[in-house]
Simulated assay, not measured.
Amino acid sequence: MTDIALPESLAQAHERLTNALKMAERPLDSAMLLAVSKTKPASMIRQAWQHGQREFGENYLQEALEKQAELADLESIVWHFIGPLQSNKTRAVAENFAWMHSVDRLKIAKRLSEQRPEHLPPLNICLQVNISREASKSGVMPDEVMALAKEVAALPRLNLRGLMAIPAPSDSLAEQRAPLAALRQLLTDLQVALPDAPLDTLSMGMSDDLEAAVLEGATLVRLGTAIFGARTTQ
């Protein structure tokens, strides 16, 4: 367990996002905090929910499903899957999540489309872009985003909402902003090419680059340690 005071850390995270939005001269409701709760117990998620947090991101499928079962009584909780996903595990995501941030190939999108239950709203999809072209990172390459987006947008039971990226680390604000600006431009290009798709989401920005991401138009920022404390070793 961690000795972090979760209500205070959650409030600080929201304050940091608010300050970043003010600095960027953006509306205060134009970006949302996604609490990354991977490796954290369901009791901490419940506590964050009790203090107003509704959006939670999970990376590990089996762990997430166990938490969802334990927290099934919580109303209005929104689950985002933000980690890599093997094609043989898509059904569980299609059936149990509202958002999937890490689609980087058509095979995964097709399976999610086919497996999304009819009684649920369409699954919100972000394409993960390898915006810094790192060999160690997942994601579709920037010059392949348009082709993949057109195919995903045509699939039933999915809503293509936008793009997600984890840029290479940088120390300066200018260096942080460059790949995030490139991701924003990709989204703008998609909005022109696919005017009927609900493309309104940039999932980018974490603890080290939140301010840069907000300056470049992030609508979902992903914070974990800043809210829940140091990550538990699995």
Rank of each mutant, 00 (worst) to 15 (best):
M1A: 14
T2L: 08
T2W: 03
T2K: 10
D3Q: 13
A5R: 11
P7Q: 09
E8L: 13
E8M: 06
L10A: 05
Q12A: 11
Q12C: 03
E15D: 02
A24N: 06
A24H: 07
E25Y: 05
E25A: 13
R26L: 14
D29Y: 09
S30E: 11
V36E: 07
V36P: 00
K38N: 05
M44E: 13
M44A: 09
I45E: 00
R46I: 03
Q47A: 08
Q47N: 02
A48G: 04
G52T: 09
Q53F: 11
Q53M: 12
E55Q: 10
F56M: 06
F56A: 06
G57H: 08
N59A: 11
Q62P: 01
E66D: 15
K67Y: 12
Q68H: 09
Q68K: 14
A69D: 14
E70Q: 15
E75S: 11
I82D: 00
I82G: 04
N88L: 11
K89A: 06
A94H: 02
A94E: 06
E95L: 12
V103T: 13
D104P: 03
R105Y: 10
A109S: 01
L112M: 10
Q115E: 15
P121V: 03
P121H: 09
P122G: 02
L127I: 09
Q128N: 06
V129T: 04
N130T: 10
N130C: 13
I131W: 01
I131K: 02
I131A: 02
S132H: 06
K137H: 06
G139K: 01
P142S: 11
E144A: 03
M146S: 15
M146G: 06
L148P: 10
A154N: 12
L155C: 06
L155W: 13
R157I: 00
R161A: 12
A168L: 10
A168R: 04
L173H: 01
A174M: 02
Q176G: 10
R177M: 14
A181V: 02
L183E: 06
L183Y: 05
L183F: 05
Q185P: 01
Q185T: 14
Q185M: 07
L186R: 02
T188R: 10
L190V: 03
L190S: 04
Q191K: 11
L194F: 09
L194M: 08
D196H: 13
P198N: 12
D200S: 13
L202W: 01
S203Q: 05
M206T: 10
S207T: 15
D208T: 13
D209L: 12
V214E: 00
A218P: 10
A218F: 07
L220Q: 15
G224L: 14
G224A: 09
T233W: 08
